Amino acid sequence: MIKVSNETKVGVLTVVAIVLLVLGFNLLKGKSLFSSDKTIYAVYKQVNGLQPSNFVQVNGLKVGSVSDLNILDNNAGRILVTLRITKDVEIPRNSVARITGDLLGTKAVQIDFGNANDYLKSGDTIYAAVDGSITDALKEQLNPLVKKLETTLSAVDSVLLTVNAIFDTTTEGNLRVAVAHLKNTMGNFSATSSSLNRMMDPEKGNVQATFNNLAAISENLKNNNDKITGILTNAEKATGTLANGQLDSSLQDLQHTVANLNQMTSKLNSNDGSLGLLMNDKKVYNNLQTSLGSLNKLLEDLRVNPKRYVHFSLFGKKDKVKPLPSDTVTAQ
């Protein structure tokens, strides 16, 4: 039996340990020593925190990983990123490898397929692009807002300076007086509001009572609608009757009558005619009064002494003449 020395055992264990260490290190970097993976390259101006072992995705599917990042110049203006494709996918030559990130900040390389019929082979270089980060997007959105805010703050500062310059001691006193007046005004407004609330009270308010009265009037009009219709019908009939009854001719006759009456009044006011003389001449009036007085005495004497005017006697005896009552009253 072959005897193995301790030195040989230690050497073998050392080699095995080194191999396992290399394999583990490559596995952690996303490399596989026992598979025929495809390696492609992309050159970026910035990688936004891309690290080895980050995923390479196609339509959200992991097809590989980032194996290495190298600087191509001293200014780090160009960064070479090595992409190891482990899935059996054909990548069109005009595809784009875009560095993206999620909300948690995890970076990945998203390959957007092109439409070329020629495909990339191991060792070829793919077009590179970088999506803006969320911070960049927010910064881009906030920059105009920040500028507007700066302008607004400047305007507010100017206004405050102007207000401080205006509000001297006199102005502050006037402002206090104005505030006191405003307080009184608000008190009056509260009293007015209370009065309006009382007026608008649905049970005892004046407005409600007015509406109730209007409702009662409307109800009465509704109940007497037939009577109102009858009155309007009668009025229409009356106006129709007047229109059909030769109202114009009646008015003309009335005008003639008024003219004749005016003419008669004029004659009465003049000295022409008996009535005019009687009304306007005092002598005629006095003579008429005297004649009427004599006629009254004659009639009274005829009543008192009828035999003076009608004498009839068989024996020829004369009756004694009686005095008139009016003459007796006059003599007394």
Rank of each mutant, 00 (worst) to 15 (best):
S193K: 09
N225M: 06
T185A: 12
A243E: 00
N224D: 09
T185K: 15
Q208P: 00
N206V: 11
A259E: 07
S250K: 13
F211E: 15
L214E: 10
F211L: 15
A238C: 09
A235M: 07
F211C: 15
S194N: 14
N234I: 00
I228F: 09
T257S: 12
Q208R: 14
H256L: 14
M186Q: 13
D226K: 05
Q208C: 01
I231Y: 06
I231R: 02
N224K: 10
T185C: 09
N223K: 12
I217N: 08
V207S: 07
F189R: 11
K227E: 05
L254E: 09
I217G: 13
D253C: 01
A215F: 09
G240T: 02
N213Q: 09
S195F: 15
L221K: 03
S249M: 01
H256I: 08
D248Y: 13
E219T: 09
L261S: 13
N220Q: 09
T192G: 15
G187F: 15
G230N: 05
N223H: 09
T229V: 01
I228W: 00
K227N: 02
G240I: 01
G230H: 02
K183F: 15
K237R: 10
K183D: 06
L196D: 07
L247C: 10
N234S: 08
Q246W: 00
T229A: 04
G205E: 03
T241Y: 08
F211A: 15
P202S: 05
D201W: 00
K237N: 07
S250Y: 11
I228V: 11
N212Q: 07
N224L: 07
E203H: 05
M200W: 14
E203S: 07
S250F: 11
A216G: 03
K183A: 11
L232F: 03
L251G: 01
G230I: 09
M199P: 02
T239N: 05
N206H: 08
I228L: 13
M186F: 01
N212K: 06
K222P: 11
D253L: 10
S195A: 12
K237T: 00
D226M: 03
N197Q: 08
S218Y: 07
N244D: 04
N206Q: 13
T239E: 02
E203Y: 02
T233F: 00
N184D: 14
T241A: 03
V258H: 13
L251A: 08
M199S: 10
L214I: 03
Q263W: 10
A209P: 10
D248K: 12
N206G: 05
N188T: 12
A209W: 13
L221Y: 00
N225A: 00
N234M: 02
G240C: 02
D248R: 12
L214W: 11
N206P: 11
K222W: 12
I231F: 05
N223L: 14
A243G: 06
L221W: 01
F211V: 15
N224I: 03
L261H: 11
I217M: 07
